[in-house]
Design a protein around this nucleic acid. Structure first.
Lengths: 240, 240
DNA sequence: AAGTGGTCTAGACCACCGC
DNA sequence: CGGTGGTCTAGACCACTTG
């Protein structure tokens, strides 16, 4: 990553918090910290702002900046930095082997709804694909996705065997920086039960999402049906 | 709300965007806008930053600030300002009448897990309550909550007939500003089926959350089981 | 090379909290 | 009243994109 002043300071303060270097759950005031780190107060504010957004610290006008006790108690809960738009966090158990099985791959005319979501015209073509995703050989997610052909004219089956996001970043130097997800719950369909090895009473979580490139172009709409045991989504809201 | 410079400017630009006053999906550059509004460039940056966080606009270093076409196309999707920590957005259909039925209300010693979540000691007491929430008379959510008695020594049944958050804000002048939610999916239990009028094959969405006061005190842990047809959670991630 | 957003600074003044 | 975080400014310089 980059090495901006505010980021460096933020990371160092975070490290100190973890190391328990601040007494009484309270940080020194912004002016002293700025002095200590030899940065402007603005930069210090920005660093502290980041910590607040991560839920590590909270600020009270008039009284000071305090460490969130829960952050020390249960750090796993707060691991948010570097989340891949909510997806990685929800699925990727560390150390598990991911697999992808391509079930379907074709080019079709965009449906009116898809066209609207992807900001296409009536007669534009899109890739349509269906993928089964595995964790240690166990199927846990069915994904149906649509991508405009004009965004990835050279999309091939091999590419869909791996992560589309990674392909975009590595091969195309385009980053997916925004997503809009809607999460709902549904009884499992016959197809779900077959593909995800579910009983009739066992449900799926449904994540419908639109993903955007950093220039704002909608890049993919996809609907993911997730085995209920693997479905977990964390949301941290901070209205500081 | 307040009338800060950056907020005023933000709202005015938002209004202009809606009114279609900017040609070609592109805003003037920051320096010109600052001049136009007679504010500093920093304040203008801050206003634009807010718009970016709301997904209304996105910025590209080197090229400019652009209106998100999807914002104009489908504004409902982007209504995020003023969200009540993700909850209101997910449940409150506008125009529907909310009801609350108190099923259970007692004081118990905090379990080890609850004590940890609420940052209590072993032998602290908590209120434990269970509420059934209705939309137009239709039950859609079972909520089981725990609140430390020392935070709300005067909690009464009547208060639990209404919104706890509103009570805190109105009567206690305390705001709930942060929440941590985990969303999962589960087959319905016998109790769910009874209370929410579900068939055996129909599931529930589960939202486990911790809510914090603005001074960082954990105020409530609660587990909500939501009728699958009413379960909807929106997540907008922006890694600008 | 010109234009755009990003970072960083130094400093003034305001708003809120607690003693 | 002193101390704290919040707002706002004016300006220098950097990094990236585009013609």
């Amino acid at each position: 990553m980059a090495d901006y002043v505010y980021r460096t300071v933020m990371l160092d303060i975070k490290r100190r918090i973890l190391a328990g270097e601040y007494e009484g759950m309270r940080l020194p005031d912004e002016r002293s910290l700025a002095e200590q780190y030899q940065v402007s107060r603005s930069s210090m504010k920005r660093a502290l702002e980041l910590l607040a957004q991560q839920g590590i610290v909270f600020k009270k006008r008039g009284s000071g900046t305090f460490i969130n006790p829960l952050y020390l108690k249960n750090q796993a809960m707060f691991r948010y930095e570097g989340s891949n738009l909510g997806l990685t966090d929800s699925f990727l158990a560390p150390g598990k082997k991911q697999g992808i099985k391509l079930l379907e791959f074709k080019v079709v005319k965009a449906s009116p709804e898809t066209a609207q979501d992807l900001f296409l015209s009536e007669n534009d073509f899109v890739y349509q694909f269906k993928r089964l995703r595995l964790l240690d050989g166990q199927p846990f997610l069915i994904e149906e996705g649509f991508v405009p052909i004009k965004i990835l004219p050279e999309l091939k089956e091999e590419i869909l065997q791996g992560s589309l996001f990674n392909y975009l970043e590595d091969a195309q130097n385009k980053a997916v920086t925004r997503s809009y997800l809607t999460i709902t719950v549904s009884p499992s369909s016959a197809e779900d039960q077959e593909a995800l090895q579910l009983k009739a009473t066992e449900p799926v979580g449904v994540m419908d999402g639109i993903f955007f490139l950093d220039d704002g172009t909608p890049f993919e709409v996809s609907s993911m049906r997730v085995h209920y045991k693997y479905m977990r989504f964390n949301s941290f809201v901070n209205l500081n």
